[in-house]
């Protein structure tokens, strides 16, 4: 054994990838660029551009979330933690379930049925203009900064891994993401993130398999697993780190910062994730997506991002490789040792996938925030949708350029501003999370309470930076940093408690909005929300899906209309036979266009199988499941006909859903 090991000792790699690796990465980026840009043809309205027409299946949403959840720094950061602390490196990936009930049955139906398009818009409707202004000011700054922050991070990672200049990597990724996000909007983001999700899972698991094979020497892969496991001490094999030490990485700090504050941020105030869920075809599909992601994908992601560190730990201990000079280099050391030319490039392409998928999501989300919370309400009100659609594309391009500028600024003028952005995140997150949570789950929470929670919470967190001792009662025995005196993780718990205390106290002494004003915006009014979303009483009977051939006719069918039936549509628009003559939908009390659905017709038997009635909301999609809803539309059931297996719709409805002639449709009742 010792003789074998001696043969395996190699120098820690000092060189970077070879030309096949560069070819793999460049080809991958070009494929993603073309793939993403292709989806521009499916964005026919502003709502399509930002929410993909709310028509996608759970697996598409769930898989695309994989890439969004694994950030630009995840591979390097968690590999380093795995190398230093063992398998507890991934504990932040497996502590998200505790808030899922509030998300599945609270926040998700609230945002879906109330049709809010951004967090600040929710603040406007729940708390009023002051809260919205505060939220826009804070979130917009944070998000644009975050794009630059990620671009800078990826530049440093690319430099570290490939040896290329930081600015080359920053410009390349910003251009690739900027082009396909501007062309295809949310649909491009979802489909490219689907590809990137597969890419980073396969790349990470491939690295794990090759690394285990390397550890196994001439044995089976199970020998590699045994070698990895026996190399780790008991503390390194456990799923959690030590309770409260060292201060740089301990269980209690990670639990409160990632498991509580991070989970709340991810589920409740991430504009990018919110838009992803609003792109689902129904609330149930959103629930399936979060279930799939949290129960199955996050544990796999934990292995994907952390395994290089565990392997590196075993390889260094067994002498298979020299210890790297810096622990953060362990990912590239293991990747290059375990993978041959080309395969190393594939693993690096997986790393690029993690980088691009975060940036594309934030670019699209920031553009939505700008259009819906700044441009539409304050700069250009009441313009036609095609104007906002064009503005959305321009905003996406401008935001990509601004993010690029910030990334290059971080590169040129050092990392002080970079650190400031990290600190800004710790200031902003707890107060906004508290305002959203109390707004969604406590009817008595007042507009004054929300503003006080945000401003007071930020003030308290600022105080903790000046007087770190105020965090000590929340520290669970964690000692502050020796140099700065700051508590690295526990400020999150302190910020949440302070913000909640201020918000609740102020609310108890101020006047809440009336129940009518907040109907549909807090958890106790979901039945009202569903009724308003549908435009009639919800139908909760569970029916079956039916398959139907599409027939184009205007007999009893309409294009998109706010009417609940064909007769009502005729009464509303007696002179509008041609689609082009349709009047724009009137606005509701929140200044949003009222929901419009095409009226389509099924046979009486088909409606009975779906347990649907005239006026119910249906989801009609191309029967090919693997399209994930790309060719689909929400429709309203019209008067029944007598031809089983046939769905009648207008030419306009057919075109809007991007259906293909001759292809059958699959139909299900939603509400």
């Amino acid at each position: 054994m010792i003789h074998l090991l001696a043969q395996e000792v190699v120098e820690a790699p000092k060189t970077y990838g070879s030309w096949p690796d560069y070819v793999v990465i460049i080809v991958y980026m070009l494929v993603i660029l073309g793939f993403g840009s292709f989806f521009g043809r499916f964005a026919k309205s502003t709502r399509d551009f930002f929410f993909s027409g709310s028509k996608f299946s759970w697996w598409l949403i769930g898989m695309s979330m994989v890439a969004t959840g694994v950030g630009s720094h995840s591979f390097v950061k968690y590999a380093q933690k795995g190398y230093e602390h063992g398998m507890s490196s991934g504990m932040s990936y497996m502590n998200d379930w505790f808030f899922i009930p509030l998300f599945m049955f609270g926040w998700l139906p609230i945002i879906y049925f109330s049709r809010v398009r951004s967090i600040p818009e929710y603040f406007q409707r729940r708390f009023g203009t002051v809260a919205r202004f505060l939220a826009v000011f804070l979130i917009l700054q944070y998000m644009v900064g975050y794009i630059g922050f990620n671009l800078f991070t990826l530049g440093t990672v690319a430099h570290q891994v490939l040896g290329i200049d930081i600015w080359v990597a920053i410009v390349a990724i910003a251009v690739v993401c900027g082009v396909y996000v501007t062309a295809g909007g949310q649909t491009a983001v979802i489909f490219t993130d689907l590809a990137q999700g597969f890419m980073l899972l396969i790349g990470g698991l491939l690295l794990f398999a090759l690394g285990l094979d390397r550890l196994a020497l001439d044995g089976a892969i199970t020998d590699g697993i045994a070698a990895l496991w026996t190399n780790l001490s008991l503390a390194e094999r456990l799923p959690f780190a030590h309770f409260n030490e060292p201060q740089s990485f301990n269980f209690i700090g990670v639990f409160w910062q990632d498991g509580v504050a991070g989970s709340l941020m991810f589920l409740f105030i991430s504009q990018g994730l919110m838009m992803r869920f609003l792109a689902a075809k129904s609330v149930n599909e959103g629930r399936k997506a979060i279930l799939f992601n949290t129960l199955f994908i996050l544990p796999i992601s934990m292995i994907v991002v952390g395994n290089a560190g565990w392997l590196g730990n075993a390889m260094v201990d067994t002498g298979a490789v020299d210890a790297p000079e810096e622990a953060r280099d362990i990912f590239v050391v293991v990747a290059e040792l375990a993978c041959g030319p080309g395969v190393f490039g594939f693993v690096l392409a997986a790393l690029s996938a993690a980088l691009m998928s975060t940036i594309d999501t934030y670019t699209n989300a920031t553009a939505a925030l700008f259009i819906y919370d700044v441009y539409q309400p304050y700069i250009k009100r009441g313009a036609p949708d095609r104007h906002y659609m064009r503005s959305a594309r321009i905003a996406s391009a401008v935001i990509a350029v601004v993010g690029l500028g910030i990334g290059l600024y971080f590169m040129t003028f050092g990392t002080d501003l970079y650190k400031i952005h990290g600190m800004f995140q710790s200031f902003v997150t707890p107060p906004i999370v508290v305002a959203v949570l109390l707004g969604a789950f406590w009817r008595r929470f007042t507009p004054a309470g929300a503003v006080a929670a945000m401003l007071g919470g930020m003030l308290c967190i600022w105080l903790s930076k000046v007087f770190p001792g105020v965090v000590a009662p929340f520290a669970h025995g964690v000692v502050p940093d020796g140099e700065t005196g700051q508590y690295m993780y526990m400020t999150a718990l302190y910020g949440l408690v302070c913000s909640a205390f201020i918000g609740v106290t102020v609310s108890l002494f101020t006047k809440p909005k009336t129940p009518e004003q907040i109907a549909g915006l807090w958890v106790g009014t979901m039945d009202f929300g569903m009724k308003r979303f549908k435009g009639g009483k919800p139908n909760h009977a569970v029916g079956k899906k039916v398959k139907a051939n599409i027939t184009i006719t205007s007999d009893g069918t309409t294009g998109p209309t706010i009417a609940l039936s064909f007769d009502e549509h005729q009464a509303m628009f007696p002179d509008s036979d041609a689609p082009a003559e349709r009047k724009p939908a009137p606005f509701d009390e929140h200044g949003q266009p009222k929901p419009e659905y095409s009226i389509v017709r099924f046979s009486t038997d088909d409606l009975q199988r779906m347990k649907a009635e005239e006026g119910d909301l249906l989801y009609v999609s191309d029967a090919r499941w693997w399209l994930g809803g790309l060719r689909s539309s929400h429709c309203r059931a019209g008067k029944p006909h007598d031809r089983n297996g046939v769905v009648m719709m207008t030419d306009e409805a057919f075109e809007l859903a991007s259906f293909v002639k001759g292809r059958p449709a699959r139909v299900e009742k939603l509400l």
Binding site: N95, W97, F98, L238, F240, F243, F251, F255, V260
Partner: peptide, 12 residues
């Protein structure tokens, strides 16, 4: 301790 703390506090 971490296991007992996470699943004790773990809100649900």
């Amino acid at each position: 301790w971490p296991y007992l703390y996470q699943y004790g506090i773990g809100i649900f």
